[in-house]
Amino acid sequence: MSTALNALPLPQAHPGAARVGIGGPVGSGKTRLLEQLIPRFIARGIELAIITNDLATREDAERVQRSGLIDPQRVIPVETGACPHTAIREDPTLNLQMADALEARFKNLDLILIESGGDNLASTFSLDLVDYWIFVIDVAGGDDIPRKRGPGVLSCDLLVVNKYDLAPYVGVDLPRMRRESAQARDGRPVLFTNCATGDGVDAVVDAISRAVLFDQP
């Protein structure tokens, strides 16, 4: 009897939501990337929630809430006290609290995307807050950004270079930027996207899924 019971597979507890950070300079396209990621994850059956760290307003949160892409109650803003660095690194406790609250409210969440408040190249996520994090820069911000090798570019799990379609209009040598991005990353992943059209975003979804949602069917 006991042998038979022992032979039964143990019920698998829900592992909890993977927490993925999206950081990067102001205007690089973090919110636009979010808007492109949301329908793709939902289409894959991923239970999703969003935290936005708005710098001074609730604009990013309200933009996502009003987008019609996701239940507005699954989108929560966090104020950063004018310190976007601090809220995702030195003192990420408010973001942790919000993530815990989302998981308590929406059972079986698979993924929480945490968008940072928009910062500079020194911005990094605490690994106590996220399992995986993406740093978003954009071509229009200058092709020298990968060369500057800021901590965000170097230490993120995935570097996304957005707005690559703008390269000819802002005088950026795209092949050179691709080459220098790869050099700065030293083998770690870099993806180029155009979040206005969604071009390249499927690869971002695949990268996140491989890294932290591998237990999904």
Binding site: P15, D128, D131
Partner: peptide, 15 residues
């Protein structure tokens, strides 16, 4: 050194 590969979800702190 920090690990190059990421780990599974909800395993923060195990790095």
């Amino acid at each position: 050194t920090s690990p190059i590969t990421t780990i599974g979800r909800r395993q923060r702190g195990l790095r």
